[in-house]
């Protein structure tokens, strides 16, 4: 989901920028020291895939639209920090060059999708991959969509409570949690199904073409 400018109060996006900036620096240092250098071309390819998937909009019944993200693939292959940094870069390019999503909402999208989505995907995969690899990948893909949707629905739904006029009229996004939670989360529980299938397919394709990694272990940044 790409939240436009003017939807989020500074009371939320300024602290979000502070948190995200700290995590961008920490994540970049961690990735720089621990990422296998030979994995960088593959990180570039998967990040480009994430960008393309986010640009392809699929119409949904009810007049709305959705897109896949590929965040589960990023997180399972390379870890949470690569996921967070790559998704942040994708969101920045989309906001600055194409006006898709706002610059003010960028840290919220990056934290929700890149960090929470990536962590949820990796946790889901790590918990289940010994039992069944495909089920673990599907769960990773599904969680990478469902949990960020919950976070973004909460971020949007809190706007009327955080910023409003004296008469109670919202200054930013006007719908409260009672509307945003079902409106955002429920469709994403369904969108998570094709996302899960995509994660199974693309991860399988990459590992078949390249092996698990260049040195036989994992590309993931601990």
């Amino acid at each position: 989901m790409h939240i436009p400018d003017g939807f989020i109060t500074p009371k939320m996006y300024l602290p979000a920028y502070t948190i995200a900036a700290g995590l961008w620096i920490y994540g970049a240092r961690r990735v720089k020291t621990r990422l296998n250098e030979r994995a960088i071309p593959l990180v570039a390819v998967v990040t480009a895939l994430v960008f393309v998937l986010m640009m392809i909009v699929v119409p949904l019944p009810g007049g709305t639209s959705a897109h896949a993200t590929g965040i589960g693939i990023l997180a399972v292959l390379f870890g949470v920090w690569v996921s967070f940094l790559s998704v942040s870069m994708v969101l920045l390019i989309q906001a600055l060059l194409f006006g898709i999503g706002g610059v003010t909402a960028l840290p919220i999208g990056a934290l929700a999708m890149g960090l929470v989505g990536g962590a949820a995907a990796l946790t889901g995969y790590s918990s289940l991959h010994r039992l069944n690899e495909r089920a673990a990948l599907f769960t990773a893909g599904w969680l990478s969509v469902a949990l960020p949707a919950l976070v973004l629905a909460a971020a949007l739904g809190l706007q009327p409570a955080l910023a409003h006029r004296e008469d109670g009229t919202p200054l930013f996004f006007p719908f409260g949690l009672e509307i945003t939670l079902p409106a955002v989360v429920l469709p994403h529980l369904l969108i998570g199904i094709p996302e899960g299938l995509l994660t199974v397919f693309v991860y399988g394709l990459i590992t078949r073409l390249r092996g698990r990694s260049a040195n036989g272990s994992t590309w993931r940044t601990p």
């Binding site: 960088i40 071309p41 480009a48 393309v52 870069m89 994708v90 060059l97």
Partner: peptide
């Protein structure tokens, strides 16, 4: 020109990762 915009975005991503790879090497 959505396809053109997607191509530009992909090119930017590869440029950034190319620069990162060059810097690390």
């Amino acid at each position: 020109g959505r396809i053109g915009r997607i191509a530009i975005g992909v090119a930017i991503i590869f440029c950034v990762f190319g620069a990162v790879s060059f810097f690390l090497r």
